[in-house]
Simulated assay, not measured.
Amino acid sequence: MKKIILPIILIFTLILSACGNSSESKNGESPTDNKKEEMMTYQSENGPIKVPAHPKRVVVLSSFAGNVMSLGVNIVGVDSWSKMNPRFQDKLKNAEEVSDENIEKIMALKPDLIIGLSTVKNVDKLKKIAPTVTYTYGKVDYLTQHIEIGKLLNKEKEAKAWVADFKKRAQKAGEDIKAKIGKDATVSVIENFDKQLYVFGNNWGRGTEILYQEMKLKMPEKVKKMALKKGYYALSSEVLPEFAGDYVILSTDKKADNSFQKTSTYKNIPAVKNNRVFEVNQKEFYFNDPLTLDYQLDYFTKHFLNK
């Protein structure tokens, strides 16, 4: 009798063991631990959408890579502008460069979430690959935008904490800078891009949000008139002195044609003559995400205060 019972017990034990193992995923996680299968509803600007509660493989098609990375979420595909940013290279070394035209390449990356601007193409095709959320640039301010992405990634608390801390640091730096340069001193943000000069308003990256919105530094009247509403204004090198403030943040690419800096028109601008032009790498200054904003704030603090 004992010889019969023991094999039965052994078989029953093996069955239980097999059932237990089948409840685990291939990577050893149980279904309750496999967070990428959990979904939540995100209220996007286009209506409610089901997205992963804990995304693990995100594709960012425009602008928001720094927001996603700052919240500790993995990116597997990213836009060319983010990929070429020297300050993002280490974090994005394993991410593939993609665009809204690379449908097959994006599909091969097996993303669980796709993020981009409202201007991205092929949205219907992208939605078939993974939940796709788009944002209209400028619809909300740059800090609210980060909080929105925090909500999307189920990290609203972390996003709000960073925003509160950043505002405090930026506003304190602004007070220190105004105390040194004078409350009426003006600052311009100018960029040389593709053989064209641009001056920027208060919400077009390149540090404009920090300088004008948080630090409350003054914008030259000509810049306010021509660039504030649209966000930017294209100008010729001949009229550049009209748009240059007491201080100039000059965004350039060292490999581009910067011959305008050799002209007498440029050299005679007061900010140039007084050594008040702070030249920055446009590839590093382009965005207004937390990683870039922290870098910009540190740069402005050091250069304005000679630290």
Rank of each mutant, 00 (worst) to 15 (best):
V140C: 03
V280Y: 04
F300E: 07
V280P: 06
A159L: 02
Q213W: 05
N281P: 02
L217A: 08
N268T: 14
G150S: 08
K160R: 07
N74S: 03
G20M: 11
I177P: 06
K273R: 07
S82G: 06
A159M: 03
I9S: 06
E38V: 08
T252P: 08
K255A: 15
F88M: 10
K110Y: 00
L16D: 08
M39W: 09
K273V: 02
M39H: 11
K105Y: 04
G231D: 08
I49A: 08
N94A: 08
Q282R: 12
L14T: 08
V272Y: 06
M69E: 13
K151H: 10
N258H: 12
Q145G: 11
L16F: 14
V199Y: 12
F64N: 13
R276Y: 09
D298E: 12
N203E: 13
F12H: 02
N275E: 12
G201A: 09
G66Y: 04
S25Q: 15
L92G: 08
G66E: 09
L153M: 00
D141S: 10
M219P: 11
R206Y: 11
K302L: 00
M219G: 10
S251M: 13
K3A: 12
D124E: 10
Y137C: 00
M40Q: 14
S118D: 13
A271W: 07
V76A: 00
I4C: 02
P48I: 11
G205E: 10
A161I: 01
T41Y: 06
N85I: 01
V123I: 09
F278I: 04
Q171T: 14
F64E: 13
M84A: 05
Q296K: 10
M40K: 15
G207S: 04
I5H: 03
K222W: 09
N27V: 05
T32E: 15
K91Q: 12
K35S: 09
L143K: 12
Q282Y: 02
N94M: 03
Y266R: 05
K2F: 03
F287H: 12
K172N: 12
V73W: 01
N85H: 01
G47Y: 04
S62T: 09
V76K: 00
K105G: 04
K254W: 10
F285L: 01
G116F: 05
V277T: 04
D112F: 03
F12S: 14
A185I: 07
I5S: 03
G20W: 11
F200C: 03
L153V: 05
F200N: 08
E45Y: 08
V140P: 03
V78C: 00
T32P: 00
S82I: 01
A234G: 14
K2S: 10
K225F: 09
V60C: 03
V163R: 01
N274F: 02
N34Y: 14
K216G: 10
E242N: 15
M40H: 11
V187Y: 01
E96T: 14
Q282G: 05
D289C: 03
V76S: 01
K160V: 02
K121Y: 06
T144Y: 06
V51E: 09
E101N: 13
K36Y: 11
I4R: 05
K225H: 13
S80M: 02
K262S: 15
N258S: 12
L16H: 07
G201H: 09
I181V: 13
D184A: 10
G66Q: 10
K110Q: 07
I129N: 03
K91Y: 05
V223G: 12
D176R: 02
N281V: 04
T144R: 09
K254I: 11
K26Y: 14
N74Y: 01
K2M: 07
